[in-house]
Write a protein that binds this DNA or RNA. Structure first.
Length: 453
RNA sequence: GGCAUCGUGGCGGAAUGGUUACGCAGAGGAUUGCAAAUCCUUCUAUCCCAGUUCGAUUCUGGGCGAUGCCUCCA
């Protein structure tokens, strides 16, 4: 499609036309998980949002033109703490959580990124970058720590709309006597005996949190690239610090051109937090709800907006997908999605607008030709919906029920008998019983059919 | 305290300087033993106050309210 893509750039928070550095190539870096605990529904949002942005970019620039990098952070204080709490080794923990994370990605129908670098596999590059920053005078060593001197970077705070004076005045910044200034942040720190460590010019230790993304984005996308994404909360300090490190180390005027951040999820209007005890793990949905339902729910609101997670939302999405599967067809030949339908996605990833368009395609397809149904199904597939066949969808619902097919057919026979005898009291009772077990009876054209609700 | 975002019908949720969003729910109808499912039709809205304008829900200013970030966090 010839149409331009627009994105809301967090720098300035304005919608801007997307122009890649190289018009034949697009690079996107998205902050992936820190593998210290199972992914929750909040982690799922950027996964799905940037998966769709990836698809849109590929649609416009070609499959091979887009490089999507999403890291895995496997060294971090939270991981150390979690391994102590769970009484398992760090390696065992990160391996296990990474595996769970990949399962969750599959469940949510997310495509694999082109690269999925791990922090622990890039320690040497991180040490290199820290060395360069010291050499150039942007960082300093003190007592086996290396700190980035924020003051030295003039554009600090440009992304998050902060100025240094206010930050310091807030005095919530961690004060350490090792630091020259309270706002300075760690590039390298020493490790305790039991903590993971690597040799460095500043002794055995480990990197600070932000360095990995600077190093890995550079390795896979270069010192300047197009899109950097993640959750809103990462704007400060994580992304601000990435910009500072990268631009100072690489002598560049810009790090990423477009910063795209997704909003937060609340649970029934409450902040999702450990202290609230309302963390919903992705894994906990797998048994009862199809990943497609979660996916639809996650994109039912524009990515920038907050999204409230509640039963009503899930039920609505279930209903919509049930309905949509009525028009599902297997698409064999490639079908083009009309520009007018695709439009909202190009316009700052307006998924609700696109969903509204799918509803219109559904209306057309429902009484329309096979071609109409193919267009409809293709439009759904484009955002990762209706990617399961109808059989798979029905099978999943079947697995939710504890009633056997045999039993259902038997009950229906019983009901038919009652109906023939005009014993409607009994026949309605049987229908209610089945409904309670999730089986929906439909008398159509003189025949009784059933399906799982 | 500082910096941001948001405030649309019963609910969710887009867009827009003047014209139908869309979905769910509700109502009416077709259909049915009654339903369900499906189809058709349909009601309901732009927080308050000023300003700009021929005209503002949309732009500007003020107010009120909600939320987020400023500390680990998607």
């Amino acid at each position: 499609m010839n149409k331009d893509i627009f994105l809301t750039n967090s720098i300035g928070y304005k919608k801007e036309k997307f122009v890649p550095i190289d018009k034949n190539k697009v690079g996107m870096y998205v902050c992936g998980p820190t593998v210290y605990d199972d992914p929750h529904i909040g982690n799922a949002r950027p996964l799905v949002v940037f998966d769709i942005l990836y698809k849109v970019l590929k649609c416009k620039y070609g499959v091979k033109a887009v490089t999507y990098v999403r890291n895995i952070t496997d060294v971090d204080d939270k991981i150390i703490q979690s391994s102590i709490d769970k009484k398992i080794s760090i390696e065992e923990l990160t391996k296990k959580i990474t595996k769970n994370y990949h399962n969750d990605c599959d469940y949510l129908k997310c495509e694999k990124p082109n690269e999925e670098p791990k922090a622990t596999e890039h320690i040497l590059l991180m040490i290199e970058m820290a060395k360069i920053l010291i050499k150039k005078g942007f960082a300093y060593e003190n007592k086996n720590h290396v700190y980035f001197e924020v003051k030295k970077f003039k554009d600090y705070g440009k992304l998050s709309n902060k100025n240094l004076d206010e930050l310091i005045a807030g005095s919530r910044v961690e004060i350490s006597e090792n630091k020259k200034n309270p706002e300075d942040f760690v590039l390298w720190k020493p490790s305790m005996e039991y903590e993971p460590s690597w040799d460095s010019p500043w002794g055995k230790g480990r990197p600070g949190w932000h360095l990995e993304c600077s190093v890995m984005s550079k390795k896979y996308l270069g010192v300047k690239f197009d899109i950097h994404g993640g959750g809103r909360d990462l704007i400060f300090p994580h992304h601000e610090n990435e910009i500072a490190q990268s631009r100072c180390a690489n002598d560049t005027d810009v790090f990423a051109n477009y910063w795209v951040h997704n909003g937060f999820i609340t649970i029934s209007n409450e902040k999702m937090a450990k202290s609230q005890g309302n963390i919903l793990k992705i894994n906990d949905f797998k048994k009862s709800i199809s990943g497609q339902v979660l996916r639809l729910a996650l994109i039912s609101t524009h990515y920038k907006q907050p999204l409230d997670w509640n039963d009503n939302l899930i039920n609505e999405c279930k209903k919509i997908l049930n309905k949509w599967y009525e028009c599902y067809v297997q698409v064999k030949k490639k079908v083009l999605i009309p520009e007018s339908i695709l439009g909202p996605l190009y316009d700052d990833l307006n998924t609700p607008g696109y969903i509204a368009n799918i509803h219109k395609l559904y209306d057309k397809a429902h009484n329309g030709t096979v071609k109409d149904k193919e267009v409809f199904t293709t439009a759904c597939n484009f955002i990762g919906l209706l990617t399961d066949s109808k059989d798979q969808w029905l099978k999943f619902k079947k697995e939710q029920s504890d009633i056997s097919e045999q039993e259902i057919l038997h009950k229906i026979k019983e009901r038919d008998k009652a109906r023939k005898n005009k014993n409607y009291k009994l026949s309605d009772k049987i229908r209610d019983e089945l409904l309670n077990k999730g089986v929906l009876i439909e008398d159509k054209d003189g025949k009784t059919t059933w399906k799982f609700k």
